[in-house]
């Protein structure tokens, strides 16, 4: 991943973050809320190589750490999403080209969402945070992944097109 593409993706993630915080969070979806930000970030990471996925994970995490309503220490999301980026990229390599396997992409992003939220909770426990009742957290995690599962098919086309547009000529070659 070139640094210019990392910058463009950071800008996209920043606008997505604003949209998530000001609009998507306002919608009272049944079960629990949906993180469009996380779904698109995981989709972008799945299409990248290891280097790109890790960089995207870190940038995406830092942006998420700026959330004013976050009660976790600054840097926790960056840590979680850097690790998730690495795991996503390593597993993505073994799966192959996602653009030819849309269903695999949907399941992969959904599983990534579950994994990310559980990792976030696990780090919270390690840092001595009060995560609340386990049942409530399970509803939150699986509710979010349910909405991710529903929206991921739409996101595949968007993320593929976005990536194709931002690729440099050197990366295309």
């Amino acid at each position: 991943m070139s640094w210019s593409r990392a910058g463009i993706n950071a800008l996209l993630l920043f606008f997505l973050f604003i949209f998530q915080e000001s609009a998507v969070s306002k919608i009272n979806l049944p079960i629990t809320g949906f993180s469009l930000y996380l779904a698109i970030l995981l989709g972008l990471m799945a299409l990248e190589d290891r280097f790109g996925a890790v960089v995207l994970g870190f940038i995406g995490g830092i942006i998420l750490d700026f959330s004013p309503s976050a009660d976790s220490p600054f840097g926790k999301w960056a840590l979680v999403l850097t690790l998730v980026g690495y795991v996503v990229a390593v597993n993505g390599e073994s799966i192959g080209d996602f653009t030819k396997r849309p269903l695999t992409f949907v399941i992969f992003v959904c599983a990534g969402s579950i994994g990310t939220l559980f990792t976030f909770l696990a780090f919270g426990v390690l840092l001595g945070e009060n995560n609340g009742a386990l049942g409530h957290n399970l509803v939150m995690v699986f509710g979010n992944s349910f909405w991710t599962l529903l929206f991921a098919p739409l996101l595949l086309q968007i993320t593929i097109k976005w990536r194709a547009k931002t690729l440099t000529s050197r990366e295309r070659a």
Binding site: D49, R50, V54, P73, A78, L79, T82, L83, Y86, L127
Partner: peptide, 28 residues
Amino acid sequence: MAAGGSNRSRLLVIILIVTSLFLITLDL
């Protein structure tokens, strides 16, 4: 992936994790 690229990404992961832990420590 080439071994060089793999090492590069591992190094990057370590650097970014250390940075994140540094930020968490600062915050705490």
